[in-house]
Amino acid sequence: MKIVVCLKQTPDTEATIKLTADKQGIEEQNIKWVMNPYDEYAVEQALRLKEKHGGETVVVCMGPDRVTEAMRTALAMGMDKGVHLKDDAFAHSDATGTAKALAAAIKPLSPDLILCGRQAIDWDMAQVPAILAELLDMPQVTVVAKMEMGADGKSAVCNRRIEGGEEVVEVKFPAVLTCDKGLNEPRYASLPGIMKAKKKEIKPLGLAESGLSANDVGKASSKVQILEYLPLPERPPGKVFKEQETPDMVKQVVKLLREEAKII
């Protein structure tokens, strides 16, 4: 079977994010970039499926040159090859633009399965896989925490986390699945894997080769307009109540929660 993993490179969860002076973006130089943590589950799942059922695994990623680092990590883990959507025209795409670009790269591959992370930890929108499924006319199952291949090899039973429990669904391939924590334990890149990764192909795919036009992607197509980036507001200092009788203090706290914080 042919499995495509959509991968995004995101800042490390531990990175300190600073805004640029013009508030139009974040300072990228000193950030450590990593594979979006949820995408690791997707890569691992692809590798396990291939180990069991054979086939080919392809990682697809859109972004500037630096994203090849995350792609190499996926290749070092064991993915077979990569397609790198790389063109200035793709920059500043919103979720729809991104999904369009990914769809254009993936369609000619005719995959049986497309695996994504449940969301990217930078924007946390979880939009791209859904739009991608729509564009490719495939069913999608989100937040998959368990997956069993069907006996026919052309379907799967997936457990997805929902509030208060799990939902079990069957899906026919080709399909888009988004992978959640718990689906598997992602492996570490091995040294032989790292050495082999160097020789694996990462095919660049520009706007022209993708068959899209400049109006489909990038800022031009973006329905989401980013006006300004703002830092998280500083947490206001807390109020400490002490040296009074407890019931009195509780009364004051409740009053403030109701009148000032307006949360009860």
Binding site: E69, R72, A189, L191, A197, K198
Partner: peptide, 9 residues
């Protein structure tokens, strides 16, 4: 590139 991947791992 290989050295960086080794250090990252």
């Amino acid at each position: 590139e290989i050295f960086d991947l080794v250090l990252d791992t």
